[in-house]
Simulated assay, not measured.
Amino acid sequence: MSTESTRSSPDASLVPPRIPLADGGWLSGIALGTWKLDHDAARAAVAESIRAGYRQIDTAARYHNELGVGQGIRDAGLAPGEVQVTTKVRGGDQGHDETLRAVESSRRILGVDAIDLCLVHWPLPRLDRYVDTWRALVRLQADGVVRSIGVSNFSLEQVDRLVAETGVAPVVDQVELHPRLPQEALRAGLAERGIVAQAWGPLGRGKGLLDAEPIVAAARAHGVTPAQVALRWLVEVGAPPVPKSGDAARRRQNLDVFAFALTPAERASIATLATGERAGKDPSIDEEF
């Protein structure tokens, strides 16, 4: 089911708030996801989205669109430092020296002096290379090649191992997170460690989340779309989302979630959707290279 927003379209004045990171950097309250966009589509979407108000763009070596993302950021014409770019070390590049080479390749393809946030994309415990990969990122941060470093799809135990063996904690753990998979224990544990939980797959990847009655009812009540309700829920639980869309109007709507708030009754109703069901891969058993 789809609900059209009755609110005005966002513009460049609707820039999400900045979320401070433990290392002094920042994360945008909403980032633009670029998964499944090719170079040309990413370039156009990134430039338009930055003009609409986005200030963080999320890509990965595995997305094969870093070139378009970098071009789109330059096309938007903002001053250096106004837009953050996140990329990720893919599974096939894990290992210390491999990571050094992979991050330098990403930096050159993106066309930036330094990568704002670089994540280990998957833990891949079977390979047991994620600590060496992390050591490489720690070195690259010290060298100024990356400004902030984090992980994606990591458990608390894996995060704690990084800290135990290197003395350096990630500032972000990007994980699947939405009302069906709220990950309360993980979010609480990350918060205790000063790590921001960032939400990928925040709209449930088209698997019916946005048709759920608690989401639809809240959308009707506030005159917004179900997607805006799902994103607002994430903002309110402190998990900045990374939505993606190939449609410019939907990208603008996804950005516009800071002018309304869910009621306690709406939050309680949305909480009933928590089944633990994943829309994407399970990092405890699945692998991605």
Rank of each mutant, 00 (worst) to 15 (best):
P179D: 13
S105T: 13
P20W: 09
L137P: 03
V242P: 06
T272R: 14
T275M: 12
S269D: 15
A279G: 15
V89E: 00
E66D: 07
K36Q: 15
Q158E: 15
T225A: 06
D113Q: 12
S269G: 13
L262M: 11
G70I: 04
I115F: 04
G95P: 05
N254P: 03
G208C: 12
G24M: 05
G95Y: 04
A169N: 10
A12V: 12
L37A: 15
L124D: 10
Q94V: 06
L255K: 07
A164K: 14
V242I: 15
V216I: 11
S9T: 15
E288Q: 06
L273K: 01
Q158R: 13
G24H: 06
H96P: 02
V151N: 01
S152E: 05
F154H: 11
A47E: 08
G25V: 07
G280H: 12
L234I: 00
Q174D: 08
L156Q: 11
E176S: 12
D116W: 01
V235Q: 00
L21V: 07
E48S: 13
P179G: 13
V171P: 00
Q183I: 05
A274D: 15
R251N: 12
L32M: 13
L162C: 14
S49K: 03
G144N: 07
D93L: 02
T86V: 15
